[in-house]
Amino acid sequence: MRDFAEIWSYLAEGPLVWLTATLIAYAIGDALARRAGRAPVINPVLIAVVLLALLLWLTGTPYPAYFEGAQFVHFLLGPATVALAVPLYVHLPQLRRAALPILAALGVGSVVAMGTALGIAAAFGVSPGTLIALAPKSATAPVAIGIAETIGGSPTLTAVLVILTGIIGAVLATPLLNLMGLRDRRARGFAVGVAAHGIGTARALQEHPRAGAFAGIGMGLNAVLTALLAPLMLMLFL
């Protein structure tokens, strides 16, 4: 029989190990979330990320080697974004009727997300480079990275802040909105989509299909508005 180390080094070079590990880690996270009755703090993404980060650290695997396998999952983000057209279409009559609340909540949510993030960070004396990366953090990752790059920010740091914002939004939205006593699924979903892009939308879809549809439209509209407003908001703080 061959040496385990030899087999491992063979397998670790291909995409199979890390693709499998990603699906298993998420299945564990999802099972725990289900067992916890979808309690928002038990977030499947967060659990899977922690498990995989530990595994990479224990096996001394660099991230690029991991991504070699995980990229197949990552790639599906594009088709999934296109597929958001399905819940949008199913809920189109409600979305149309809600045009006014949607536009008002979009403007307020987008400005508050950027204004409070920059305001708090600037008050702590955070460096200009970090402020630039912070401004578009509520927009979906490809848009946020594009915005940060055009105004001279680091794409890597922006990606980190975008993902963290999504996880924070997905974890905090349900307890926060319950605490506020807000039960309107349209308002709940839309707010999470505006503030926490795709990860928030994923959480809203778990809550209810209608919340998911409103989250999807919130994410799409805020991607556009953030691109327009981020340079202007930054002028106030730089």
């Binding site: 990603t22 699906l23 880690a25 998420y26 999802d30 977030n43 499947p44 993404v45 967060l46 899977a48 990320v49 995989l52 980060a53 990479l56 991230y63 991991y66 991504f67 995980a70 990229q71 999952v73 990552h74 599906l76 983000l77 088709p79 999934a80 597929a83 958001l84 399905v86 819940p87 990752a141 890597t156 740091l157 990606a159 980190v160 993902i163 963290l164 999504g166 996880i167 997905a170 795709g198 990860i199 939308t201 994923a202 959480r203 879809l205 778990q206 998911g212």
Partner: peptide, 19 residues
């Protein structure tokens, strides 16, 4: 595809840990 939208953010999330 959308039923497991959360899963698709895991690879990027793992990348965040290192940064």
């Amino acid at each position: 595809i959308l039923a497991h939208l959360s899963l698709l953010f895991v690879p990027a999330g793992v990348g965040v840990v290192g940064h």
